[in-house]
């Protein structure tokens, strides 16, 4: 193999190896990219994970939106977890409060985390929570129960094509991996 060819081999190998390493990095870059794209396009039903500020809005009384509440429990979560109201009619812009009732059915202290999802996904960007139990981890002692509050409003800009928003919570058992700080925060509530 001539020196010239060895040289051009080395250069090409360098580019190809760099490409492979770059694509390994790209695989990981897809993670934040996915979140950003979903948020910007509002396509996967994820709602915001921090409290929205309620600016006194004009309530659009000419229109009502049906809001439905659902709850799911992961198989290893020993809680009862149900919405107080399954379905309500709200006006866009109106600040509404509702509760979810949780009860720890086990004999051990359990830490839970509720993950919200809105359907249809395109409606997620118009569903604003000013207070939600899902912003924090929730701690329940054995056999304890709690009323978990949710305060929200529907954005008046909600497209006309959407007349029903379904808010679904899945409750996960995170006892084994909760942080001490988070536990205190949850317990304080």
């Amino acid at each position: 193999m001539g020196a010239h060819q060895a040289d051009s081999n080395r250069k090409l190998i360098g580019w190809l190896v760099a490409g492979a390493i770059g694509m390994f990095g790209f695989g990981f870059a897809l993670v934040p990219l996915y979140d950003v794209l979903c948020e910007q396009l509002g396509i996967n039903g994820k709602t915001q994970s921090t409290a929205a500020v309620y600016k006194p809005l004009t309530v659009d009384t000419s229109r009502t939106v049906t809001v439905e509440f659902m709850s799911h429990i992961q198989t290893d979560m020993p809680w009862q977890f149900v919405p107080e109201v399954k379905r309500m009619e709200v006006h866009p812009g109106e600040l509404v409060r509702t509760n979810f009732n949780a009860k720890n059915l086990s004999l051990a202290q359990t830490l839970g985390q509720a993950i919200p999802s809105v359907s249809p996904g395109q409606g997620a960007a118009y569903f604003h929570k000013t207070e939600c139990f899902c912003f924090n981890q929730q701690l329940l002692e054995a056999n304890a129960d709690a009323q978990l509050p949710l305060i929200f409003y529907v954005d008046p800009d909600l497209p006309e094509s959407i007349s029903t928003l379904t808010l679904s919570y899945t409750l996960y058992n995170i006892t084994d991996r909760g942080y001490v700080g988070a536990i205190e925060q949850g317990a304080a509530k």
């Binding site: 490409g19 694509m23 695989g27 993950i115």
Partner: peptide, 29 residues
């Protein structure tokens, strides 16, 4: 060259999710 590294990344995420407590694919985290 373009996609085998992405597979390697995916299985690595599965590995860390399962054994090292990351939450790439876990909604709870």
């Amino acid at each position: 060259i373009a996609v085998m590294p992405v597979l390697a990344g995916t299985v690595t995420m599965v590995l860390t999710d399962k054994y090292f407590g990351t939450s790439f694919f876990d909604a709870a985290g």
